[in-house]
Amino acid sequence: MNALEIKDLRKSFKGFTLDGVSFCLPQGCIMGLVGENGAGKSTTIKLILDILHKDGGSVKILGKDNGEDIRLTKEDVGVVMDEVGLPTCLTAKQVGKIMASTFKNWDSAEYSRLITKLSLPENKEFKDFSRGMKMKLGIAIAMSHGAKLLILDEPTSGLDPVVRDEVVEMFYDFTRDETHSILISSHIVSDLEKLCDYIAFLHKGKLLLCEEKDELLARYAMVHCTAEELARLAPAAVKYKKENAYGTEAVVLRESVPDGMKISPISIEELFVFTVKGEGK
């Protein structure tokens, strides 16, 4: 079963259109949603959760249409939004009590364990939390009610590198259970590269690409050469290129590069930047 099935998802605002986004997240996998500011990542997530009303298309969460009693579906979905919207006067302890009355499967012991693990104060008001602490509290809530699917919108932003690594490790542990899946959006592509099985690129409301990460890294490579050297390659082999006074950088199809030409592995971040810039031309 797929944890998420999104078909032809559409939504229009003034000045922005999410244009027929489709992708599937298989159960047990992690998908990274990569996109610049305003690409449509948060909109996609809000449409999945039915916080925004879709103009068209369909969304299935854990096999159920998000139009049919999403309240029950949300028992199985842990969510961290880009801004954790908890009332500012609440403490982590009070939040625990509220969530215990909210989720049927709330695990108070797990919540306490995560609060301690993430070094969060129990009795400090939310308004006095740093952005990183707010995010950590959001993550603790999302992971304390036996969710089968985590939907995370920029969950690592505001976290210092050490905590970020710890949190990424927590997400990784979460998917050791093969019925658990994660959809995660982030600007910090290096985190996604570490974590994800699938990568989706969103740009100006359009899905440019959605594939297995290992497949992408195996298919594409970077070349640093002169314009003349690049011109010797078949045009179809060169996906995107960038020229400057010091030479040419290009994303190429590995299998089309002749022996002897020096190539280097590509990172997801490089592939994203080149893909987006290529789209703009």
Binding site: I51, R71, E75, V79, M81, E83, V84, G85, L86, P87
Partner: peptide, 18 residues
């Protein structure tokens, strides 16, 4: 008003409430 200010109105959409 406090809910709106703290963006709980959005966050409540992620919780199992109608």
């Amino acid at each position: 008003a406090y809910d709106e200010h703290s963006r709980f109105t959005v966050y409540s959409g992620t919780l199992p409430y109608t």
